[in-house]
Amino acid sequence: MTTPLTTTSVPDLAPLLRGAIDLERTAHGVLPHRLPARARAQCADPQLAMVEAQPAGVRLVFHTAATVVELDTLPTKRHYAGSPPRPDGVYELLVDGRLAAEATAVGGHTLVVDLATGTTEHRPGSPVTLRFAGLPARPKRVEIWLPHNETTELVALRADAPVAPADDGGRPVWLHHGSSISQGSNATRPTGTWPAVAAALGGVELVNLGLGGGALLDPFTARALRDTPADRISVKIGINVVNADLMRLRAFGPAVHGFLDMIRDGHPTTPLLVVSPLLCPIHEDTPGPCAFDMAALAAGRAAFRATGDPGEVAAGRLTLTVIRDELARIVGERAATDPHLHHLDGRALYGEADAAELPLPDNLHPDPATHHRIGERFAHHAFADGGPLAVNGTPTAAR
Results as ranks from 00 to 15, higher is better:
residue 56 A to Q: 11
residue 192 G to D: 15
residue 255 A to M: 07
residue 259 F to Q: 13
residue 384 A to Y: 08
residue 269 T to N: 09
residue 197 V to F: 09
residue 131 R to L: 02
residue 362 D to Y: 06
residue 282 I to L: 04
residue 338 D to R: 01
residue 313 V to N: 05
residue 188 T to D: 12
residue 137 A to G: 10
residue 285 D to A: 07
residue 341 L to H: 08
residue 199 A to T: 12
residue 100 A to W: 07
residue 327 L to A: 15
residue 166 A to Q: 00
residue 65 A to P: 02
residue 297 L to D: 02
residue 387 G to M: 14
residue 9 S to Y: 10
residue 160 D to C: 03
residue 177 H to F: 13
residue 382 A to G: 05
residue 324 R to L: 07
residue 306 A to L: 07
residue 32 P to C: 06
residue 16 L to M: 05
residue 321 T to S: 15
residue 60 L to Q: 06
residue 320 L to Q: 13
residue 180 S to W: 03
residue 207 V to Q: 04
residue 379 A to K: 04
residue 276 S to F: 13
residue 18 R to E: 01
residue 368 P to R: 12
residue 200 A to L: 12
residue 356 A to N: 09
residue 108 G to P: 14
residue 345 D to W: 01
residue 332 G to D: 12
residue 356 A to Q: 15
residue 322 V to C: 06
residue 26 T to S: 04
residue 53 A to N: 14
residue 36 P to D: 15
residue 224 A to S: 14
residue 280 C to N: 11
residue 104 T to N: 02
residue 117 T to C: 08
residue 10 V to I: 13
residue 195 P to F: 12
residue 129 T to E: 00
residue 382 A to C: 12
residue 19 G to P: 13
residue 353 A to P: 06
residue 61 V to G: 09
residue 370 T to H: 05
residue 227 D to P: 09
residue 159 A to K: 00
residue 99 L to R: 08
residue 196 A to Y: 12
residue 160 D to P: 05
residue 289 P to W: 00
residue 181 I to M: 01
residue 230 A to R: 14
residue 111 L to A: 14
residue 215 A to R: 02
residue 384 A to D: 11
residue 47 Q to P: 00
residue 201 L to Q: 14
residue 373 R to E: 07
residue 398 A to T: 09
residue 247 M to P: 11
residue 346 G to D: 14
residue 86 R to L: 14
residue 399 R to F: 10
residue 85 P to S: 00
residue 53 A to M: 08
residue 358 L to T: 06
residue 384 A to N: 04
residue 32 P to V: 05
residue 374 I to M: 05
residue 165 P to K: 09
residue 98 R to Q: 15
residue 82 G to M: 01
residue 295 A to R: 02
residue 124 P to R: 10
residue 294 M to L: 08
residue 340 H to A: 03
residue 142 V to N: 14
residue 110 T to G: 10
residue 32 P to R: 03
residue 169 G to E: 02
residue 204 V to F: 06
residue 4 P to C: 08
residue 39 A to V: 02
residue 270 T to H: 11
residue 368 P to A: 11
residue 389 L to P: 11
residue 148 H to N: 07
residue 340 H to Y: 11
residue 361 P to W: 03
residue 107 G to C: 07
residue 312 E to L: 04
residue 233 I to G: 09
residue 353 A to R: 13
residue 202 G to C: 11
